[in-house]
Amino acid sequence: MHSDHRNYFKFTSKARLDKSVNALIGIVEGIVIDGQINALELDYLNLWLAEHDAVRDQHPFNELVPVVTAAVADGILTEEEHADIVWLCERLRSTEFYDDVTADLQRLHAIMGGIVADTHISVEELRALSDWMADHEHLKTCWPFDEVGSLITGVLADKQIDAKEHAMLQAFFAEFTPLLDDRTITSPRVLEGRQIVGLCAVDPEISFMERGFCFTGASSRFTRAEFEGVVKRLGGSAHSSPSKKVHYLVIGAEGNPCWAFACYGRKVENAIKLRKAGSRVVIVHELDFHDALADHGS
């Protein structure tokens, strides 16, 4: 466990279990959303279960997993099996720790992961996702709900998905899949005005003198205290949360299993709100931060 995570773990066991419940439900919804199941989607589900082995025998995993396994064992998902899984997912959805909005955003992230699990996104899957979103309009104004809706509307305008659109959708959906080494968002998109733009800056110009920095997630190279110390030595200031005084939010490459969402937490969420309200906070990946330090001889 990363040293920066130890202080959070003892306070977040219930939160992490609830997040895992909602994520598994979303993955199941995502891989069955078009009424079909294939080997790659099953591999994705099994990989997710393997990475969450510590909770697979706990309720409600021990209730949901056997039902899903039995339904997809023959590689064919009947309409009745699909309906049974969706019904069970709704019944097991957890809002004991998180509120409805956060719980359903956790599901949305996982649904996108389930859809992209077989590396192919179909028109049928997008339409089904659009239907799901229509039933969850309480998520409007919450990132990335509006962005997903805008992408779907634009892509389906001509009722087909071309190669460029498919690559864009695949890259965006995969941002919210925290498997293997990809623990944080790296190049997601955000809706600003009527345009979808990149959330994380590409090759950003990072200045330190009289600039405010906030950090989220963990790094394999620095502790949080070391990050803050470097910034202060270079004339900047460190802040505990995004605000109008923060110019850069740096996302640690190791992420944080205690985040509210799979690949980001409240600080990124708040930074996005500030961006949409007109603040010029720049969200940068840790690797770009290290490049900036090298440029400054640190």
Results as ranks from 00 to 15, higher is better:
residue 1 M to W: 03
residue 1 M to Y: 07
residue 2 H to T: 00
residue 4 D to Y: 01
residue 9 F to T: 06
residue 11 F to D: 01
residue 13 S to R: 14
residue 14 K to T: 06
residue 15 A to F: 08
residue 15 A to H: 10
residue 17 L to S: 04
residue 19 K to W: 08
residue 20 S to H: 07
residue 22 N to I: 03
residue 24 L to R: 02
residue 28 V to Q: 03
residue 30 G to L: 14
residue 32 V to A: 06
residue 33 I to E: 04
residue 34 D to Y: 12
residue 36 Q to D: 04
residue 37 I to L: 11
residue 37 I to V: 09
residue 43 D to T: 11
residue 49 L to T: 02
residue 50 A to F: 12
residue 52 H to K: 13
residue 52 H to P: 06
residue 58 Q to G: 01
residue 59 H to T: 12
residue 64 L to A: 00
residue 66 P to W: 01
residue 67 V to S: 08
residue 67 V to L: 14
residue 67 V to W: 05
residue 78 T to M: 09
residue 82 H to I: 00
residue 83 A to F: 14
residue 84 D to K: 05
residue 86 V to N: 02
residue 89 C to A: 11
residue 90 E to L: 11
residue 92 L to Q: 07
residue 93 R to N: 08
residue 94 S to A: 15
residue 94 S to P: 09
residue 95 T to W: 07
residue 97 F to W: 10
residue 99 D to E: 03
residue 102 T to R: 10
residue 105 L to V: 11
residue 108 L to S: 08
residue 112 M to L: 13
residue 114 G to F: 04
residue 121 I to V: 13
residue 122 S to E: 06
residue 123 V to R: 11
residue 124 E to C: 03
residue 125 E to L: 03
residue 126 L to D: 06
residue 128 A to F: 08
residue 130 S to T: 10
residue 131 D to I: 06
residue 132 W to D: 05
residue 135 D to A: 11
residue 136 H to Q: 07
residue 139 L to Q: 05
residue 140 K to P: 00
residue 141 T to D: 13
residue 142 C to L: 01
residue 146 D to L: 02
residue 146 D to N: 10
residue 148 V to M: 09
residue 149 G to R: 14
residue 153 T to P: 02
residue 156 L to I: 06
residue 156 L to G: 04
residue 157 A to F: 06
residue 159 K to M: 05
residue 161 I to H: 07
residue 162 D to A: 10
residue 166 H to E: 07
residue 169 L to H: 01
residue 174 A to S: 05
residue 175 E to C: 02
residue 177 T to R: 12
residue 180 L to N: 06
residue 181 D to P: 00
residue 184 T to D: 07
residue 184 T to P: 03
residue 184 T to W: 10
residue 186 T to E: 12
residue 188 P to R: 07
residue 192 E to F: 09
residue 194 R to Q: 11
residue 195 Q to L: 11
residue 196 I to Q: 12
residue 201 A to E: 12
residue 203 D to M: 05
residue 207 S to L: 09
residue 209 M to L: 15
residue 210 E to Q: 15
residue 210 E to D: 15
residue 213 F to R: 02
residue 216 T to Q: 13
residue 219 S to C: 00
residue 221 R to M: 11
residue 223 T to C: 03
residue 223 T to S: 14
residue 226 E to P: 03
residue 228 E to L: 08
residue 229 G to D: 14
residue 233 R to N: 14
residue 235 G to P: 11
residue 235 G to W: 15
residue 236 G to D: 15
residue 237 S to I: 03
residue 237 S to N: 12
residue 240 S to I: 06
residue 240 S to Y: 05
residue 240 S to L: 11
residue 242 P to Y: 06
residue 243 S to W: 14
residue 245 K to Y: 10
residue 246 V to N: 08
residue 246 V to L: 09
residue 248 Y to K: 10
residue 248 Y to N: 05
residue 250 V to P: 03
residue 254 E to D: 12
residue 254 E to G: 10
residue 257 P to E: 13
residue 265 G to P: 02
residue 266 R to T: 13
residue 266 R to A: 12
residue 268 V to C: 09
residue 270 N to F: 13
residue 271 A to P: 11
residue 275 R to N: 14
residue 279 S to C: 15
residue 283 I to D: 05
residue 284 V to P: 00
residue 287 L to D: 13
residue 289 F to G: 04
residue 289 F to L: 04
residue 290 H to G: 00
residue 291 D to Q: 14
residue 291 D to V: 09
residue 295 D to F: 04
residue 295 D to M: 11
residue 296 H to M: 00
